[in-house]
């Protein structure tokens, strides 16, 4: 053990830095819930007192409920489609080696490195040129482009994590490809699929830029919030809404990360 310890010697300054960095990641966001309970319309210290009225106001805005419902619909369809597409791509690159597979994969991941404003405006032009209406469908298409790379990345780390010989054993014992998938592969990669569904849903639910360009008369929750930011009087209830969204996203994503990373071996750290 001694010959390793000089490399892994505890490094206190580094540990302090890491904790400060985590604070930098989390603290700014915590001001949203803090001020959502503050009994004043201006967002400033000192705090005036505790109130739940901003949360009560949320129940009385029909436009918000419509936007929430739209976001749930768009998120659900996006999650299912992008995870489905992700499974094919992840399985192809983790099981088979062939020239061209890696480049094809690189192209699938391209949306990660295109500014969303460019994809969003380009899709807007296409939709309008084709004479189609901007609707929840156009938002969903935009969200699928954004989420597929994440679904693929998450699923790859899961597909890489299990033993290929299990599948081979199944086919040696006479199962066809379809049943091998459902009875062997699927249960093994299920945590990855569930995590991908949850994370892609959350990305879609929180996505703003694509939704902003591709919204017609019906919008999603982030676009609704954006439209409310202009009115100072509405700010506290936007903060209340934001706090609720953050809380929900936090739990969904923590759960997803937990099921995804549990059991992925250390040699394949993944995204």
């Amino acid at each position: 053990m001694k010959d390793v310890s000089y490399i892994h010697r505890p490094n206190r300054p580094l540990a302090v830095y890491a904790i400060l960095y985590l604070g930098f990641l989390y603290l700014p966001v915590l001001f949203l819930p803090l001020f959502s309970f503050n009994d004043a319309t201006t967002i400033a210290f000192p705090l005036k007192g505790f109130t739940l009225r901003w949360y009560e106001q949320l129940a009385e805005i029909p436009a918000l409920h419509g936007a929430l419902l739209n976001s749930l619909k768009v998120g659900a369809v996006t999650a299912v489609v992008s995870t489905f597409l992700g499974i094919f791509a992840a399985k192809a690159v983790t099981r088979y080696t062939a020239p061209g597979l890696r480049p094809a994969m690189a192209i699938i991941m391209v949306p990660l490195v295109i500014p969303e404003v460019i994809l969003g405006t380009a899709l807007l032009i296409l939709v309008v040129q084709l004479g189609m209406e901007l609707s929840l469908v156009s938002i969903t298409v935009g969200h699928i482009i954004v989420t597929v790379p994440f679904a693929v990345a998450m699923l790859i780390s899961r597909f890489e994590g299990f033993d290929k010989s299990m599948e081979e054993a199944s086919s040696d014992l006479g199962e066809n490809a379809w049943w091998t998938f459902w009875r062997v592969t699927f249960p093994l990669v299920f945590p990855g699929i569930l995590a991908s569904l949850l994370v892609t849903f959350t990305i879609s639910f929180d996505e703003f830029i694509m939704a902003f360009f591709l919204s017609g008369t019906e919008t999603t929750l982030p676009v609704y919030m954006w439209s409310q930011l202009r009115f100072p009087a509405r700010l506290p209830s936007v903060l209340a809404l934001g706090a609720l969204i953050l809380l929900a996203s936090f739990f969904v994503v923590t759960f997803a990360e937990w099921i995804r990373r549990r059991g992925v071996s250390r040699s394949q750290p993944g995204l």
Binding site: L85, G86, F88, A89, K91, A92, V93, R95, Y96, T97, A98, G100, L101, A104, M105, I107, I108, V110, P111, I114, I118, L119, T121, A122, L123, I125, L126, Q129, V141, I144, I145, V148, V152
Partner: peptide, 24 residues
Amino acid sequence: RGYVLISPTFIVMTALMVAPVAMA
């Protein structure tokens, strides 16, 4: 098999990126 498996995702994603950018 690898090509067949990756093609749905590849075709959908390529179409969804190339068509709008070409139109733009």
